[in-house]
């Protein structure tokens, strides 16, 4: 499989998280707002936004420090879930069929809530001795169609598979500083997205890769386009297989699309 770089969406300020909804609509979280591209809308958040996600019903969740803000599709603030303990620093949000998942980087755990915001259980906390090792300061994960959670565990150079109940099923990935099939550096991959496969980003040097669910490397999507000082580059994949990656230094979103050979 091959990808080609099709577009750069330039920005200013701090760009931290992105999400794509079912219609290919792109949302970006940064500074203190959620930006909706194409519609060119800006929804202010009450605290700096670290993550954004779109639920199947079209509502948009913004992860912040100590809280999650939930907007409807038109940008109206519906709810604020505030919990300084369980939502220390929300750097990723995802959904299973019946629950909302929030990655809390302050406590190195994924929290599972029901749709009403009631806390159900932790995922990844203390699993396999020390849980999610994230010296980079970001918990990121993706959820597949069977509600399996794929969490980046950069300190272990792995992507770990969990059930919604928090049981560790297994992992893909290993350290390798030479072979691109492995993850390099101290702590990679930092971010992960799930669609028809596992998509990862790495820091130092920045690298975007695609794996199948068994952990086989399908493609190195990009390496040298990004600023060398980037880290925690959020990644999203739309239904057509287009890959969106954040360059945190340039505050830009790079778009790649698969090329049929």
């Amino acid at each position: 499989m091959q990808y080609r770089h099709v577009q750069v969406i330039d920005g200013k300020g701090a760009l931290r998280g992105i999400a794509v909804d079912g219609n290919g609509q792109l949302y970006a979280a940064g500074d203190s707002e959620i930006r909706v591209f194409d519609r060119n809308e800006r929804w202010p958040t009450s605290r700096p936004a670290h993550a954004v996600a779109v639920a199947s019903d079209g509502s948009v969740y913004a992860g912040e420090i100590g809280q999650i803000e939930i907007f409807n599709g038109a940008g109206k603030l519906l709810h604020t879930w505030r919990d300084e303990k369980l939502l220390g620093r929300v750097t990723a949000i995802g959904f299973t069929k019946d629950s909302v998942l929030a990655g809390d980087a302050a406590d190195r755990a994924i929290r599972r809530f029901d749709r009403g915001g009631k806390f159900l259980n932790n995922i990844g906390k203390d699993s396999a001795v020390n849980g999610l090792l994230i010296p980079n300061g970001v918990v990121d994960f993706g959820v597949d169609a069977q509600d399996t959670i794929y969490a980046a565990n950069p300190g272990k150079h792995r992507v770990e598979r969990y059930t919604a109940g928090g049981e560790l099923l297994g992992h893909i990935g290993r350290f390798d500083g030479i072979d691109p099939a492995g993850f390099t550096g101290c702590c990679n991959p930092t971010n992960v997205a799930i669609r028809d496969g596992i998509y990862t980003t790495e820091k130092a040097g920045p690298r975007v890769k695609a794996y199948d669910f068994s952990g086989k490397l399908l493609a190195v999507i990009a390496t040298d386009l990004f600023d060398a000082n980037c880290k925690n580059m959020d990644i999203a994949v739309d239904a057509r297989g287009r890959v969106y990656v954040v360059d945190t230094v340039k505050a830009a979103i790079f778009v790649f699309e698969p090329v049929k050979v």
Partner: peptide
């Protein structure tokens, strides 16, 4: 220091 694991986390 915001991302390094501290004693209570270790």
């Amino acid at each position: 220091v915001d991302t390094a694991p501290q004693a209570d986390s270790i």
